[in-house]
Amino acid sequence: MFDLTGKTALITGASGGIGGAIATALHGAGATVGLSGTRTGPLEALAAELGDRVHVLPCNLSDAEAVNALPKQAVEAMGSVDILVNNAGITRDNLFMRMSEEEWASVLEVNLTSTFRLCKGVLRGMMKARWGRIVNISSVVGATGNPGQGNYAAAKAGMIGMSKSLAYEVASRGITVNAVAPGFIETAMTDKLNDEQKAAILNQIPSGRMGSPEEIAAAVLYLSSAEAGYVTGATLHVNGGMAML
């Protein structure tokens, strides 16, 4: 099950905890992977770890020209992009009343607009191939909201509406578009929380623990597979029961 041999996957934010786990899972299922991210060092390190069938494709997602060029670079490196995982994201948290235009715009640009650009860039190849998988990594806060994250929650909710609209348009061409909405996941970002903050978060999670990046990767692997061909426009919530949607 879930064999991706012969498929090519482009993963953004592959230098992060969740992105790295996604790349590792898709690679482990046989896919050739294109690792994209801003920081070349961690991408090279992950590539070295994975071995063959790996391409490093650095890209700054706040640079529109670089984003528009990325799908072409991926096709040059891998021959196609059969699977696109829009995982990269940034946060610029602030109370709504204090949030600057810049904080709002930069989060929307990197998290939502770059997702739009990359989806657009890979669609031509997927339409021709009559096969494609797009998985957009949203967030539980896109559905529930979160104080201090008006910009981030807006971008993550926007990804879901965008995924559903695109899913309608391309379903007849064998292309599925889905979202995965992680809850609290153990990454470098959540490591920074102190014990008190962690305890408060865990109180809200019925399963009583944070999720692992591998648990997000498993959801992405499923949605990327041939077996998930009848699943489109869906949002798969992976959050330990924190929000049952």
Partner: peptide, 9 residues
């Protein structure tokens, strides 16, 4: 409408 996009492609 999607067919017309594909034709142009």
């Amino acid at each position: 409408s999607l067919d017309t996009v594909e034709l142009v492609m």
